[in-house]
Design a protein around this nucleic acid. Sequence first.
DNA 1: GGATTAACATGAAATACATTCATGAGATCG
DNA 2: CGATCTCATGAATGTATTTCATGTTAATCC
Lengths: 309, 309
Amino acid sequence: MQSLLELRHLKTVQALRNAGSLVRAAQLLNLTQSALSHQLKALEEQYGAPLFERKSLPLRFTAPGERLLALAGTVLPAVDEAERDISRQVQGVAGSLRIAVECHTCFDWLMPAMDIFRHRWPEVELDIVSGFHADPVGLIHQNRADLAIVSEHDESDAGQGIDFHPLFQYEIVAIVANDSALASRNWIGAQDFVGQTLITYPVPDEMLDILRQVLTPAGIKLARRSTELTVAMLQLVASGRGIAALPLWAVQNYLERRYVSAVKIGEHGLFGKLYASCVAETSQRPYLTDFVSMTRESCFLTLPGITLL
Amino acid sequence: MQSLLELRHLKTVQALRNAGSLVRAAQLLNLTQSALSHQLKALEEQYGAPLFERKSLPLRFTAPGERLLALAGTVLPAVDEAERDISRQVQGVAGSLRIAVECHTCFDWLMPAMDIFRHRWPEVELDIVSGFHADPVGLIHQNRADLAIVSEHDESDAGQGIDFHPLFQYEIVAIVANDSALASRNWIGAQDFVGQTLITYPVPDEMLDILRQVLTPAGIKLARRSTELTVAMLQLVASGRGIAALPLWAVQNYLERRYVSAVKIGEHGLFGKLYASCVAETSQRPYLTDFVSMTRESCFLTLPGITLL
DNA sequence: GGATTAACATGAAATACATTCATGAGATCG
DNA sequence: CGATCTCATGAATGTATTTCATGTTAATCC
């Protein structure tokens, strides 16, 4: 009798459209697939009609489903904006968000995320702390940065009043030439790197997962060659000058075009994790939590093959 | 961390503004005052600021409160509209709502309610079945009306697949001249009517609560005089030609201007109740439930001193 | 054509959450 | 200064959402 529609349902419907499947939508919302299934069932029962076709991929919505999507499209941004306004009214927000980055590829997703953020929080001073620092958390302590994007969290930092907000996890794959002997392998181990030239970004060793997690533990030291640009690394690999290890999402395009080949590293794959870390006090700021959740969402929707943490 | 705001909260905030107090807002929403208090407390905790000033009457909202109100003002109508659109998509609604009325004063609130309805459901054919019928439910059975506004429900009808949707309750007071001996009484009983002329609308006896509930049971029969217009009745009373019994809300204006006086009927007052009745099938239609809830709301906000059933 | 993987559905159990109940405190009014 | 009104609050209740543990279906792959 009485409408059971809540913002929650609108968020679900929108996530469903963006994510393209119940499973992915559930990850986006930090819920289980089952929860969404129940939610949607309840809605469909209330309206007496299905909201979307289950079989088709990509998901197709019915007319009532589209109408709900349209509603979500106007309502949810309005709600977000109102809540940001209230944050501003309550604590005249005029803070800063200086972001320290330790990994090269981060820029690929950080830029679009920052653009969205700038639009949502125009009065917050947004910056990237340039250069690559071996210890980005140190920059926070020195108050030269507000937020650091890091790949592992030092347990020692966690105690020091530093919060780690999980972002996402991505697979790091070995990139080899198409005609390489390794290209057809199911996966390769540390020993398979021996004799190769490793092509990397020009950053300290500790910041390269392939070294820190695989080669150094195995006691292997390789010839190195470095370059700033991902395309340049791929060009070197393609022309047989060496092997690289890069995030899968960063090279997906080239793989689809068969420019180079990717091989899993280790039997279960090598994964990089990313966290946003800041002092506990900063964690409280509404724009900080907004930045984190917005970044997670935009990365999940943009970067292929990543999973949220 | 995560926003707890739901449509429910927006409805609460809006009801609070419209009703002017937690208690009245709770009646509007079919909730207890306590529920709203808890809801608002949770919101204020989340935003870290009060939403309204508790002491002042009429209620004053703070800046965050106003911002939420503004949000509710854009969001809730959009949600309503979307749900109506979905109803239309699912079951191409093109029904009719022919309303049979048994009481005279009903027009005062029915007209504005119908105006709102017409705007919300333009494709539904809206009509009043004119004339005053002793048995409006009969009109439904004959399919000459879809909805009847009645003051008591016949138990015999309830079985026959007729639904009764409670609307509201109002007090019926005796209207006497200011200089009448009765004017100063705390309340008057059936015996106090003896010897007076009863001024009524020109309708059958069964439809007058004062007769049905008070005078007839006491075996009292009075001289009668009738007129169509409420003002005319008051004029007669004021000039000492008789006594009337009318809904308090209908005469509130005149009482405030001390044109006539009102006296409670019976120690605990005489109350009229109104229901909207229709066949069970009609009850299902989305526009019917919308009409009922919308009418309840608009009456509650417009008519002074009524309580929802 | 099984075997495997992936996506969604579903009933029951667990959990979280909103609401009510039963008060108390504070203000207002004859 | 009771009487009445409004709102707040903690505990108890009850409902509703979510998870858990499966089942089903469809698509993909040797």
